[in-house]
Amino acid sequence: MIPHPAEPRQHLRRYLGTQWRRLLKIAGTASATLAVAFLGLTPMGCYLSRAAYEEARILARRQPIPRLVARESTEPALRAKLALVLEARQFAVDSLRLKAEESFTTFSQLDRDTLVLVVSAAYPDRLERKTWWFPVVGRFPYKGFFDFTEARRTAEALSAEGYDVTVGPASAFSTLGWFNDPLVSTTVKADSVTLVNTVLHELLHTTFFAKGQVSFNESFATFVGGRGAEHFFRARGDSALLRRAQDDWHDDLLLGAFWERTAKEIDSVFATLPDSARTPRIAARDTVYTRARRRLVDSVGPQLRTYPAGWVERVPLNNAVLMSRRVYAERLDRFDSVYTAAGGDIREAIRRVIAAHRDSVRTTEKTRKAGN
């Protein structure tokens, strides 16, 4: 399967590459001979070796951002973007009380326009994503490739096996504190609103990350990046970029509701058919996607403010696409309701969401212990 055209705002297309960034742990738990054999002779070993090599290259190119901003020889457009990153980082710390640690203090210039291609797949007859197993860290519902030819080859093989597949670029990543992640040139090329959104999104991950709850984590970060960017540009007195940030969040909410409704409709038709009825289930979900496309074109599309003309006709609709989008946009309205209840105070909304989640975890744990 050939990768579909990238969405216009790729700040929602991030790759949490923890599986290959923990590669060093493998060496600590296996003999050198076995490790070399694994890394050099098996498909997974080759994949991890390539990832570790590319990560090492990125880390080796790190330069302190403040030094680049102060340097006269730094290209003016790059200097302006890097200065904006530092400003957004400080805003996250001072105004949102996010933990920045060492994130976004260094910059790496890459020699390519795309950081990594991410392949995701799903079963066509149920809303379930295919997962890949990695040593030490377990299973993940996506696989990232620095080798783009291999990414396309993998996507084509999955499609031939009958999976729904989606392929897209990731321009940024977070290792959740495992490394001092540099800002990379593929991220800096984004527009100013997207760049600020990305900084706030990733720093939310640094501040809070619920174990085993990918959709909650990413959707929470989408909320913080979206609403946080509004507050950043408002505080900066930049009315033009404030309007753009508001338009971005408007579209995030609108599309989040679209993906949510579509998923519920597919769940409903699947519930009427037995698991063994693969062909009827696929036909039923195709009918849902046909209706969803009409809704996207006729109703949702005219309301979008930041997407180019024709996007609603081009975006693929299948289970892999649906589930990948929902990871970053699951019930965004719930986070926004907390924001509204907090009187539009984004810092207080963040605090309330984190507190409510921790309370829920404690309650669940007490119930589990009582049941035992």
Rank of each mutant, 00 (worst) to 15 (best):
P8D: 12
Q10C: 02
L16G: 03
L16N: 08
T18Y: 11
R22M: 03
M44W: 04
R50N: 04
E54G: 01
E55M: 09
R61W: 07
I65W: 10
E72Q: 02
A92L: 02
R97K: 13
A100M: 11
S103R: 10
D111V: 07
L115S: 12
A121P: 03
P124I: 06
P124D: 14
R126A: 00
V137G: 00
F140I: 15
Y142D: 11
F146H: 14
E150T: 11
E150W: 11
A151D: 10
R153A: 13
E156I: 04
D164K: 09
D164H: 07
G168D: 08
A170P: 06
F173I: 00
S174W: 15
T175L: 08
V184Y: 08
D191K: 13
V193A: 15
L195C: 06
H205Y: 08
F208L: 09
A210R: 13
F216Q: 03
S219C: 06
F232N: 10
R236H: 08
D238W: 02
L242K: 12
A245R: 08
D248E: 02
W259D: 11
E260V: 05
D267R: 14
S268I: 11
S276P: 00
T279D: 12
V288T: 10
R293D: 12
Q303V: 01
V312T: 10
N318H: 13
V327T: 14
R334E: 09
V338K: 14
T364D: 05
T364L: 10
K369M: 14
